[in-house]
Design a protein around this nucleic acid. Structure first.
Length: 406
DNA sequence: AAGCCGGGGCT
DNA sequence: AGCCCAGGCTT
C-alpha cells in the first residue's frame, strides 16, 4: 500500500466506524452553533464525563447567545464553578456579547469571525466550523495528535507548536469530501475510546491494519511529548475567622490573574516552610498579615489549627494550613497557640470586645473586597474547589473530617 | 518559546 | 501519593 492508499483507508474506515460507534452526547443532539461552541469551550482541557452535567445546566440557564450576553458575570462564573480555567467562562461571555451586538445573536458561518472570538484558538475554530457548519477545516486537539502520531508513526514532539501546525496540514488532507463534521469528531472519538494515552485498545481499532506506529511496535511510545515543569510549592496560611453570629470572613480575589474575581478565605504565603510548620510563627504571621490588611482584632494567640488542604494548579501547588478563631466552634485539633504579641495593640482592643478571639465592631468597616458570609451567601458566590470544600464542610459542621490527623 | 491559567482520573 | 491528561492567552 502506498501513502495515498494508507490515508484513504484511514479516512474511510474511521468514518464508517464512527457512524456506528459514536456516543450519544448532549451537544450531538443539536446542530445549533451556540451549543457546539459552548461544548467546545467546556471541552478544552476537560473530559466529556465532567462536561456533561455542566453543559446541561449551562444551556438551561443560558439558552441563547443573547441570554448569556445579558447575564451578570458572577452568574456565569458560578455556573462554571468547579470546571476550572475560569478565563474560559469570562472569554465565552465576552464573545457572546460581541456576537449579540454585531451579529444579531447568531454565530456566523464565517471563519474570520469565529477564529477572532475571545477564547477561540486554532482547535476550537476548526471544531466549530466543521461541526456546526460542515466546513472542511481541521480540528487538532490532543486526541487527534495522539492518533495521527501513532497511525503515521510521527515522532515529533507534540508539545511544540510547529508539530501542531504540521498535524493540521495532515488532518486537512484526510477529511473526506462533505464529511468534515463526522470525520473530525471520529478522530477525537477514536482518541477518547480506542487510541487512549496509556494502553491503546488496538484489536478493536478500525484502522489497526495499517497503523504505522503499531506495525513498528511503537504504539505505546507514541506520541512523543516533552515534560512540563513540576508545579512550584507554596506554603500558605489561611484564616477561618467568625463573628459572633458564626458568619465567616472571606474576600474576593483581584480582577485579573489566578482565580480572578472568585471568593476565598484570606490567606498569606509563608516565607519559608519552617514558619508554616510552626504553630506560633504561623499564627503570628497570619495575624500580622490580617492586621496589615486593616483587620484590627486578630489575636495570634487565639488562632488554632483547624484543617490542612491542598490545591494543585498546573504551575503551582498550594499547601494550605487553615487557622481558625471565633464563633462558637469549640473543637480544637491542636493545642492552643501561644504566639508573640505581634498584634498587641489590636489585641487589647479586641480582648475587651470579644473573648472568643476575633470580632469586628459592627460599625467598623471591612477593607475593600472583604465581607462576612453565612451559609446562604456561600451558595451564591463562586469559589475555587479548595475553598468550596472547606467552607461547605465548615457550614455543615463536618470540617473535622478534613482536619489534620494529629 | 515559556509561563500562566484548574481540575480529575488512573495506577 | 505520584503519575498523566489537555487549549488559549500573555509576555
Amino acid at each position: 500500500m502506498n501513502e495515498r492508499e494508507i490515508k484513504s483507508f484511514f479516512s474511510g474506515e474511521l468514518l464508517q466506524w464512527y457512524k456506528q460507534a459514536k456516543r450519544d452526547l448532549p451537544w450531538r443532539r443539536s446542530r445549533d452553533p451556540y451549543h457546539i461552541w459552548v461544548s467546545e469551550i467546556m471541552l478544552q482541557q476537560t473530559r466529556v464525563d465532567t462536561v456533561i452535567p455542566y453543559f446541561t445546566r449551562f444551556m438551561a440557564k443560558f439558552p441563547t447567545v443573547t441570554a448569556l450576553a445579558e447575564a451578570p458575570e458572577e452568574e456565569v462564573i458560578k455556573a462554571w464553578e468547579g470546571l476550572g480555567y475560569y478565563s474560559r467562562a469570562r472569554n465565552l461571555q465576552a464573545a457572546a456579547r460581541e456576537i449579540a451586538e454585531n451579529h444579531g445573536g447568531r454565530l456566523p458561518d464565517d471563519k474570520s469571525v469565529v477564529a477572532g472570538l475571545k477564547g477561540v484558538g486554532p482547535y476550537t475554530s476548526g471544531a466549530i466550523l466543521s461541526i456546526a457548519f460542515g466546513r472542511p477545516e481541521p480540528a487538532v486537539d490532543g486526541n487527534v495528535m495522539r492518533v495521527l502520531s501513532r497511525y503515521f508513526c510521527i515522532d515529533e514532539d507534540i508539545a511544540k507548536p510547529a508539530t501542531r501546525i504540521g498535524m493540521e496540514g495532515l488532518a486537512r488532507e484526510l477529511i473526506p469530501e462533505g464529511e468534515a463534521s463526522d470525520f473530525n469528531q471520529a478522530l477525537m472519538e477514536l482518541g477518547a475510546l480506542i487510541c487512549t494515552p496509556k494502553s491503546p485498545s488496538c484489536l478493536p481499532c478500525p484502522v489497526m491494519a495499517h497503523c504505522q506506529g503499531r506495525l513498528a511496535g511503537r504504539e505505546t511510545e507514541l506520541p512523543v511529548k516533552s515534560k512540563a515543569k513540576p508545579p512550584r510549592p507554596e506554603h500558605r496560611l489561611a484564616a477561618l475567622l467568625q463573628d459572633a453570629e458564626g458568619r465567616v470572613l472571606v474576600r474576593q480575589r483581584p480582577e485579573s490573574g489566578l482565580l480572578a474575581r472568585m471568593w476565598e478565605l484570606p490567606h498569606v504565603a509563608a516565607p519559608e516552610r519552617g514558619v508554616w510548620d510552626s504553630a506560633s510563627e504561623g499564627s503570628a504571621l497570619l495575624a500580622a498579615s490580617m492586621h496589615a490588611e486593616g483587620l484590627a482584632g486578630v489575636r495570634a494567640e487565639s488562632l488554632r489549627h483547624v484543617a490542612d488542604a491542598e490545591h494543585v494548579f498546573t504551575h503551582l501547588h498550594w499547601h494550605l494550613r487553615v487557622l481558625g478563631a471565633g464563633g462558637g466552634q469549640g473543637r480544637d485539633a491542636e493545642a492552643a497557640v501561644a504566639a508573640e504579641a505581634v498584634v498587641a495593640a489590636a489585641a487589647a482592643e479586641a480582648a475587651a470586645e470579644d473573648q472568643a478571639g476575633y470580632r469586628i465592631n459592627a460599625s467598623a468597616s471591612l477593607p475593600t473586597g472583604y465581607r462576612w458570609i453565612d451559609a446562604a451567601d456561600f451558595e451564591r458566590l463562586a469559589w475555587p474547589n479548595v475553598f468550596s470544600k472547606l467552607l461547605s464542610a465548615h457550614f455543615s459542621g463536618t470540617l473535622y473530617e478534613i482536619a489534620p490527623k494529629r
